[in-house]
């Protein structure tokens, strides 16, 4: 058992070694924190990014597009409820598998903030553009961005996890 007495002020070499030791532990744990989500959840979140822009577009469409607006609203809400239920299950399983807390700051802040701000703007913007132009390409464009983001983030986690391991 190490004692406090043994831990008198270290020399620069000892301090450097202690910092290096701490950094090594950090790197090892960072690999755990970057453990990618299971593929089934990546598929679920990607599916949500497919449904959401189209459902929002249908909800805002005037006149109705493919089905009544209330049906699009129900579709969107059901998708959200299902997604959050799956997220709860996936998060619980992830914590149980890794043994560490789920953190939202594994990826660089700029990437997380950009995704959290830009994606909703694109989804909502595409829905309004669709309402004004009746061109579904706007919605499909938003779907493509969402899918690319979902897959890209997953691959980023896979890379971080492999690199840190």
């Amino acid at each position: 058992m190490e004692t406090n007495e043994a831990a008198s002020q270290p020399t620069p070499e000892q301090a450097r070694a202690a910092l290096a030791d701490a950094d090594e532990v950090r790197a090892s744990v960072a690999a755990l924190s970057a453990t990618p989500w299971p593929v089934w959840f990546v598929v679920a979140i990607t599916a949500m990014f497919v449904v959401l822009p189209i459902a929002l577009g249908g909800m805002l469409a005037e006149p109705d597009w493919l089905m009544p607006r209330w049906a699009w609203l129900v579709t969107m809400l059901a998708t959200e409820v299902l997604f959050f239920a799956l997220f709860a299950v996936a998060a619980r399983n992830w914590r149980a598998r890794t043994g560490v807390a789920l953190r939202l700051d594994v990826l660089p802040t700029w990437a997380t903030v950009a995704a959290a701000v830009v994606l909703p703007l694109i989804v909502v913007g595409a829905a309004y553009a669709f309402r004004d132009t009746r061109q579904p390409l706007w919605l499909f464009g938003a779907v493509a961005v969402g899918v690319a983001l979902s897959v890209g983030f997953h691959l980023w986690f896979v890379r971080l996890h492999g690199k840190a391991s």
């Binding site: 950094d23 950090r26 744990v29 960072a30 924190s33 043994g99 560490v100 807390a101």
Partner: peptide, 10 residues
């Protein structure tokens, strides 16, 4: 160092 990085660990 581990707990500072992980937030919480088993």
């Amino acid at each position: 160092a581990l707990l500072d990085t992980a937030g919480e660990a088993e």
